[in-house]
Computed example of a mutant assay.
Amino acid sequence: MTIRVWDYLSEYATEREDILDAVETVFGSGQLVLGPSVEGFEAEFAAYHGVAHCVGVDNGTNAIKLGLEALGVGPGDEVITVANTAAPTVVAIDGTGATPRFVDVRAEDQLLDTALLEAAITERTRAIVPVHLYGQCVDMDAVNAVAARHGLRVLEDCAQAHGARRHDRLAGTMGDAAAFSFYPTKVLGAYGDGGATITRSAETAEALRRLRYYGMAERYYVVRTPGHNSRLDAVQAEILRRKLRRLDTYVAARREIAARYAEGLGDTELVLPSVTAGNEHVYYLYVVRHPRRDEILAELAKQDIELNVSYRWPVHTMSGFAHLGYGPGSLPVTEHLATEIFSLPMYAALDKRRQDDVIEALRRTLGAR
């Protein structure tokens, strides 16, 4: 039986009754678009984070794109982020008409190197999008200090960091706004696409609500452009309401799995995840490093164990972003990491037997005793 890098079926078997009740709740409500399920999730997700506003959208990419637009980013602007991220981060920036600009990451935690931020700022820079990668937070004090000195907006990319904390502050509560994805693989995952942007600002929230609904202030009357059709699906919102109540349980399970990996693989040649001081990691992904990465992936595939690479191609090396002008060697740490990183199976319902099989297979492959 194949051990997958991610699987929802065990979780669904446990939560099936609640998930199907969520679907029935929406179907029986008489309102299939926006309505009480979306409003309820928005209120509860905002309350979880201790902020005033949450605006549900159709996916995490648009949570970033609309969030940036609501903060005033548009054509002619530049937005600083990293290339060691899922491509949607950069696709969203590009979608506003702004130009993405990259800084390198730190080898030890693969997070944005805040020491490089200042040098990347130009007269066109409008915003910074720090990516809380793999489940832990960027040094937001350093990001915010740079942003304050230069009058920049900060939108946190929290797609991989639901429930993560830095110095006891939740990911998503440290910038002007924050974007979340609820793609099924996420720590808080829907049963389809979904996203949300949270903020303390009533003005930003009002702009977000108009942007996701064609630019309308009221039905059929557009008051601002650009406008989009980017509403969070009501069924997904109701499912997310149920799962939000279990978010801390999911995080605890992921941390237990991470601890078991650390115990079982700590004496091998693998470079295991490093938790930065002040961070509370939620392990959306359990990312390790080894110079013989591709050999290891091939060998475990023969044993029906799936591993993954997040991400094999840094965004600045993709042909779709060649126009940005970042040639080989421009982000040396990011480029080197891309040759070594890979992810082990990680999801809250991963049982100990399957995890032990992964650990034993890796130890055999690496020649560890």
Rank of each mutant, 00 (worst) to 15 (best):
R354N: 15
P75W: 00
M1L: 10
A119S: 15
V138W: 02
G194N: 03
P314V: 13
A178P: 01
E218F: 07
V309C: 11
L20E: 15
D176Y: 03
R245K: 15
Y134Q: 06
R254I: 08
T125V: 01
R231P: 01
T199G: 12
L285G: 10
R241L: 02
V235N: 05
V82P: 00
R255C: 10
G194H: 03
T317A: 15
T339Y: 06
Y250A: 12
V26G: 03
G329W: 04
G35K: 11
D7S: 14
H132N: 15
F102T: 03
P130V: 04
A83E: 03
G329L: 06
G151L: 11
V287K: 00
R242T: 06
K186F: 05
A164N: 06
Q236H: 00
E44I: 09
A63L: 09
D351M: 10
F321T: 04
A115C: 03
G264C: 11
S10C: 06
D248Y: 02
A120I: 00
T317C: 12
R369H: 14
L244C: 09
G60R: 02
V23D: 05
G172I: 04
I296R: 14
H167E: 14
G163C: 04
H336V: 07
M346E: 10
L344Y: 02
L366R: 14
A177E: 00
T276S: 07
A252F: 03
H290V: 13
D21R: 15
I3E: 05
N279L: 04
A322V: 08
A46T: 08
Y250R: 13
F27M: 09
D139N: 13
R200Q: 13
D168Q: 13
S310V: 12
T173D: 08
Y326P: 04
E203F: 10
A148L: 06
K302S: 10
K352F: 05
P345A: 15
V79Y: 00
P332L: 07
H228I: 05
G60M: 06
V333D: 01
A98K: 00
S29R: 12
G50E: 10
G325V: 08
L350P: 07
E269G: 15
A190Y: 01
D267E: 14
G320A: 10
V271M: 07
E69V: 14
R289G: 07
S37Y: 01
D248M: 06
F342I: 11
A145I: 10
E44L: 15
R293V: 07
A234T: 07
N229P: 01
G151Y: 05
A161N: 03
D304G: 12
R200W: 01
G325H: 09
D233R: 04
G189E: 01
L244Q: 06
A120E: 02
N229R: 14
M346D: 07
A161W: 01
D113W: 04
Q31M: 14
Q136N: 08
E206I: 00
S230M: 09
A107N: 03
A43G: 10
S274T: 13
T61F: 04
M1R: 09
A63D: 04
S230C: 13
A147S: 07
A202K: 11
E108W: 00
L362H: 06
L111C: 08
T2N: 12
N308K: 13
A298W: 06
A87I: 09
L366C: 14
L152D: 00
G28D: 14
